[in-house]
Amino acid sequence: MTNNGSSLMDGSKKENIQKFLTQSDQESPVISTIQRQIVTAETLMLLYCILCVVTFLFISVSQIFGSLSPDPNSFIPTSSYGTVCPKQWDFYQGRCFFLSTSELSWNRSKDFCERESATLAIVNTLEKLKFLQNITSAEKYFIGLIYQHAEKRWRWINNSAFNGNVTNWNQNFNCATIGLTKTFDAALCDTSYRSICEKNAK
């Protein structure tokens, strides 16, 4: 009796285990589907959080630096970190340069630059001369160099000495231009040419 009872119990256990395994096999696709749905929901939630963070950063940066489409009077970053030049001005070695498209006399060009809180360009290094020659078109540009008759020498507009050579000079050609050649060229001050303004980068 004991052996028969034990056999019946073992058979019942085996049957229950087999039913459990069969039921588990039948439910596994459902469980897998639920798991996939959970993973998908978690992924969507993560993407939503990332999108929120990116949107927040974009708004913050826009508020700090202003509109991505600056107005004509706005400033734009330059190649040097922490310095900016006004729009349409070129940056070089801590300075901003503006090449005019209108043609004026030397005195009127000087006044124009002063209205822009600048001066006519002081091209007192070979590097600066090469930089400006690279960005000028096939035009003459007045610069801040003028002949002082009393001293019989050329001086920059800030009264510093000029140590180079000016071609084509005569007693009537008392202002200087650059652009068409690789040198400083004398010109009539009352003739209308384009000009180059210069000021400190901010």
Rank of each mutant, 00 (worst) to 15 (best):
L145V: 07
R115Q: 03
V54A: 03
N168F: 08
F131Q: 12
D90Y: 15
Q18V: 13
R115M: 07
S195P: 00
E116Y: 15
T78D: 10
K152E: 10
S6C: 08
N174S: 04
F173T: 14
N134D: 13
I38C: 03
G82R: 13
N200Q: 08
I135S: 06
K130D: 14
R95W: 11
V54P: 01
Y193T: 08
I64S: 13
N159D: 04
I157F: 03
V61N: 07
N170C: 03
S79I: 14
S192I: 00
D90E: 12
I59R: 14
N16I: 03
C113P: 10
I178R: 04
A161E: 05
L180D: 06
T177R: 09
L46I: 00
V30G: 01
S28F: 10
F131V: 05
I50V: 08
H149N: 10
Y92R: 14
A138P: 00
K19H: 07
E114S: 14
D10Q: 13
D90C: 11
N124G: 01
R194G: 03
S100Q: 11
N174C: 05
R194N: 13
N107I: 12
L126S: 13
L8M: 06
K202P: 11
K182I: 05
G66F: 02
L46K: 10
Q23I: 06
F65C: 07
D25E: 15
Q23M: 09
F142E: 02
P77N: 04
N168W: 07
Q88I: 13
M9G: 00
N159E: 10
K13I: 15
M9F: 14
C197A: 01
S160K: 07
T22L: 08
L129F: 15
L120M: 06
P70G: 09
I157H: 04
M1L: 12
L129G: 03
N165R: 08
T43P: 01
S67V: 02
W106I: 00
T22M: 08
L99G: 04
F97W: 14
E103N: 02
R36A: 15
W154C: 08
M9Y: 12
E127F: 03
A41L: 15
W156I: 03
I31R: 01
P29L: 08
L47P: 01
D111V: 14
L129E: 07
Q133R: 06
S74T: 02
T125P: 00
S105D: 15
R108S: 06
S67L: 12
I143Q: 00
C96H: 10
G164W: 09
E116T: 05
V53R: 09
S80T: 15
C49K: 05
Y147P: 06
F162P: 02
S105G: 08
T2G: 05
Q171L: 01
E198W: 01
Q93N: 09
P77S: 03
L68W: 14
K152I: 02
I122T: 09
E27W: 12
Q37K: 10
S160R: 08
E139G: 05
L21Y: 04
D111F: 14
V166I: 12
A186R: 11
N73G: 04
A121F: 01
E127H: 04
Q37R: 13
G5A: 14
A41M: 05
